[in-house]
Simulated assay, not measured.
Amino acid sequence: MTVTETTGGTAKADAPDLLTVTGLVRHFPIRKGLLQREVAAVQAVDGVDFTVKRGETLSLVGESGCGKSTTGRLLTRLDEPTAGRIVFEGRDITHLSDGQMRPLRRDIQMIFQDPYSSLNPRHTVGKIVGAPYRLQGVNPEGGVKKAVQAVLELVGLNPEHYNRYPHEFSGGQRQRIGIARTLALKPKLIVADEPVSALDVSIQAQVVNLLEDLQEELDLTYVFIAHDLSVVRHVSDRVAVMYLGKIVEIADREGLYGAPMHPYTTALMSAVPVPDTKRRTQRDRIRLQGDVPSPINPPPACRFHTRCWKAQDICKTQEPPLLELAPRHQVACHFPENAPTQTQPQTQTQTQTQPPTP
């Protein structure tokens, strides 16, 4: 798959925060009995903190069930958070009602994973892409039909497709229709929930390049949810790695792929397919033992300690905080890899007082 590289860096790092998430929690209660009493809860998202700069792409990656898709639904307020705060452009939107959220739907949109089930098969393309205008009461200049055809052309579809139905299109074309619906009201933030995972590899590159071109042209901000680390590497400015409802590492793309610090991230990187046979035989493949623990009863302290080859007693008793061990590189691990010794909190004072080695 060939995709173009993004050019993140200082400009995006210095941009203002568009989205700020603090202590975000979502527990799904499990009820039993005649009175439907709550006996347990699925801890899908359990204390997530991050910020998204205006114009950047932040990717959420991790195994299935780690909570990344639930986080995306919380950001778009398609689901109600159990606790925490979501601040968009300085406004707390955590517990806004449906009526209060309606005007904000213009600025926060979502691209769904399945291009087959996300489109109503009974509606034409014109009605699907034009729905945001009708729901928001927006009357674009020249009429809805002209605006819809312009958006269809923007995403690489023929304006003459206006009167056709979803079943007449391929998977990649259906995803373009979904992207067109997302772009109709010119949003500021787009949450893309695995937008290419259901597509053929050859089509994935086309859709990824389309999203990058649209971001540059329309000044969009993405929260990109995926499990394919090779795709994430091309589209991201920063990457947040999730495991069992928590962020274990968050860093710039170059820092994360060049020197991953959390053992879980290292294991994920080693699983990425390498087309070069020489490089494939030279690298160490890390195979994690055991299954992912249940989010109903996650392990105490560090949730990864049951599968980690570096785990010690402290990992079972004390939860590691998410600390910045390198510039713009945060990790939650007691024994991180590739971490500069001088930046580790427990040795920072000591290294400052010691004389330099001759």
Rank of each mutant, 00 (worst) to 15 (best):
L323T: 15
R134A: 13
T51N: 14
S270N: 05
T70W: 10
G47Y: 05
D200R: 04
T182H: 03
L220K: 02
Q346F: 09
D17I: 14
R307F: 08
Q109M: 03
A339S: 09
L19D: 03
I86M: 07
I190F: 09
G47W: 03
A240H: 11
V138F: 00
T351G: 02
S294Y: 05
F304I: 02
V39S: 10
D252P: 12
V25P: 12
P81Q: 00
E80F: 14
K145Y: 06
T349G: 09
K316E: 12
T94E: 02
D213A: 13
E254H: 14
I203L: 07
S64H: 08
M1F: 09
R253V: 15
I247V: 13
R176P: 15
Q342Y: 11
V61K: 00
S118K: 08
F169H: 03
L75I: 15
V208I: 14
M261K: 08
N158T: 13
G143L: 00
Q344I: 15
R85D: 15
V207K: 00
D237V: 14
P320H: 06
L218D: 10
A226Y: 02
T357D: 05
E194T: 10
V144P: 00
K186S: 15
D98L: 06
D49K: 09
T6S: 14
D92P: 11
K186W: 13
P195I: 13
H167N: 09
Q318A: 15
C308R: 03
T347S: 02
V48R: 02
I286E: 01
V239K: 00
V223M: 00
G156T: 04
K310D: 12
E63P: 14
N163L: 13
R73D: 11
L152N: 02
I86G: 06
V45Y: 01
R279L: 13
M101V: 06
Y165A: 10
E194S: 12
A326S: 12
T347F: 05
L58R: 01
P298W: 02
E194G: 12
G142I: 08
P300I: 03
P29K: 03
S202K: 05
H27V: 13
H95Q: 11
P263Y: 01
A40H: 02
L157F: 04
Q206C: 15
V235F: 03
G137P: 01
T317H: 08
E217D: 15
F224Q: 00
G67T: 06
V25H: 07
G9S: 07
L185G: 10
C308N: 03
L104C: 09
R307V: 04
V125H: 00
A44H: 05
R303H: 08
E5W: 11
P327D: 04
D219Y: 07
R37G: 13
G9R: 02
I314D: 10
K278G: 11
P29A: 05
M110V: 15
